[in-house]
Simulated assay, not measured.
Amino acid sequence: MLIGYARVSTLDQHLDLQMDALTQAGCHRLFDDKMSGSRAERPGLAKALDMLREGDTLVVWKLDRLGRSVKRLVDLVGQLHRQGVHLKSLTDAIDTGTPSGRFFFHVMTSLAEMERELTAERTRAGLEVARQLGRKGGRKRKMTDSKIASAKKLLASGVPPRDVAKNLGVSVPTLYRWIPASSQA
């Protein structure tokens, strides 16, 4: 069975062109959404995916109607493939029910994986350069060495911890994390 899915990004846009093309392609059921493709929750797509059974084909007017990122498309096609479902894009002339369509998606998968690996490699290299320059990751410490020394003096002179924390611009738990109660005396 051919199941059609159409999407427009805003309520001002119209689904007519996509719906007509899907009907002409022979889709038995049509589902649609009027929302951004970047949103993970799309009720129309969810219903279309629930209806699909092994041997069925999900038909879209254009690949970008399914999602904005290559990764999301590749993940969706992988999910469909595991279910024994094909994907057909009318304007992109792609059909994963054919050898050339499957090949195209294998190439897309490889490119997406390579991009993820390159991003991770660049991140690791950047962190290594930062370490060599003496930088440490994470947030800056709220309690500097001078604040710790001041806090110890104030606490030793009898100032309540709440007032010390407020004076230093930190919370009481942060104060206690750096100056445990046992070391205040």
Rank of each mutant, 00 (worst) to 15 (best):
S157C: 04
V85K: 01
V60P: 06
D12S: 11
T10G: 03
T96I: 12
G37S: 11
C27A: 08
A6G: 05
A181N: 10
M35F: 00
K140W: 05
T109K: 15
D75S: 12
R53M: 12
D92E: 12
V74F: 07
I148S: 08
M143L: 08
G169Y: 15
A156R: 15
V172F: 00
D16C: 03
D33P: 01
R162L: 14
T96N: 06
P180T: 02
L58E: 07
R162N: 14
V74G: 13
G169Q: 15
M143W: 09
V164S: 05
G126C: 05
T10D: 07
A156E: 09
G67E: 10
L80P: 05
K62R: 14
G84L: 06
R124K: 13
L63Q: 09
S36A: 09
E128F: 03
K136S: 11
R42E: 06
R53I: 00
F104R: 10
D32S: 15
R139I: 04
R65L: 00
D50S: 12
M114S: 01
G101N: 08
G55V: 10
E113C: 02
L111Q: 06
L11W: 09
K166Y: 09
L63R: 07
V70F: 08
L87V: 01
R177H: 14
Q83V: 03
S171R: 14
R102V: 00
S38Q: 15
D20T: 10
K147Y: 14
S183G: 04
T174P: 08
K88H: 12
Q132M: 14
S38N: 15
S183D: 15
L58N: 09
E113A: 04
L175K: 11
S100M: 14
V85G: 00
A93V: 12
Q132H: 08
Q13L: 03
F31A: 03
G37P: 14
G158D: 02
K62V: 05
E128H: 06
W61F: 09
S36E: 07
R7Q: 01
A130D: 05
G138Y: 06
T10R: 10
V59Q: 01
A46Q: 14
E121N: 13
G26L: 06
H106S: 15
L80C: 04
F104C: 09
S110M: 09
E41G: 03
A120W: 03
P161E: 14
Q24I: 04
R82H: 12
K147E: 13
R68W: 02
R141G: 12
A40W: 13
R102Q: 10
I3A: 05
T91E: 08
T23P: 03
I148K: 07
A112R: 09
L90D: 01
L17C: 03
N167K: 14
D20N: 13
G158I: 10
D75V: 08
L22Y: 07
G78P: 07
Q184Y: 10
G134L: 04
L22E: 04
D33H: 00
G67V: 10
L155D: 01
A151D: 01
I148F: 02
T123K: 11
V159F: 00
Q79W: 06
S171Y: 10
L127H: 06
G26Q: 09
R39M: 00
Q79F: 13
L52M: 06
A25G: 04
L127F: 13
F31M: 04
